[in-house]
Amino acid sequence: MPTTAHTHAAAPVLVATDLSAQGDRALDRAVVLARELGARLIALHVLEPGTSAAAGGAPSWHRLTEDHREWASYRLGLDLDGAGIDTDIHVESGDPAEHILHLAQACGCGLVVTGVGRNESLGRLLLGSTVRKVVRHVAVPVLVVKTRPHGTYPKGVVATDFSPESGHALGLAARLLPRTPLTVFHACDTVLGMPGDAAHAPESLQHDLDHEMRGFLADIAGLPPGVPADTTVQYGEPETLLSEYVFRTRCDLVVAGAQRMKGIMGAMVGSVAERLLESLPSDVMLVRGQAVP
Rank of each mutant, 00 (worst) to 15 (best):
T4S: 08
T4Q: 01
T7K: 05
A9G: 01
S20V: 13
A21M: 03
A21Y: 03
R25P: 04
A26H: 09
V31C: 09
L33G: 00
E36W: 05
E36V: 04
L37W: 00
A43H: 10
A43P: 11
L44H: 01
P49Y: 10
G50F: 13
G50N: 05
G50S: 10
T51M: 11
T51R: 01
S52H: 12
A55D: 10
S60C: 07
H62F: 12
E66D: 15
E66Q: 15
H68S: 15
A72G: 08
L76Q: 07
L78K: 11
D79Y: 01
D81H: 11
G82R: 02
V91D: 10
E92S: 03
D95R: 00
H99E: 14
L101W: 05
Q105P: 07
Q105T: 09
C109W: 03
G110T: 08
G110F: 09
L111Y: 00
E120M: 06
S121P: 04
L122A: 05
L122K: 02
G123P: 11
R124T: 01
L126M: 13
S129I: 04
T130H: 08
V131D: 08
V135I: 15
L143K: 01
V145W: 08
K146F: 12
T152Q: 15
V157K: 01
A159K: 02
D161P: 11
F162M: 09
A169I: 14
A169Y: 07
L170P: 09
R179M: 11
R179E: 15
P181G: 01
L182D: 07
F185W: 06
T190L: 03
T190C: 06
V191D: 14
D197S: 01
A199M: 08
S204I: 14
D208T: 02
D208W: 04
D210R: 02
D210A: 08
L217N: 06
D219N: 13
G226K: 05
P228I: 08
Q234K: 04
E237W: 09
L241R: 03
Y245L: 13
Y245A: 06
T249Y: 09
R250D: 14
C251H: 00
V254N: 00
V255C: 05
A256I: 08
A258W: 04
R260K: 12
V272R: 10
A273P: 02
L276H: 00
L276Q: 04
L277W: 09
L277H: 06
S279H: 14
M285T: 06
V287C: 00
R288M: 03
G289L: 06
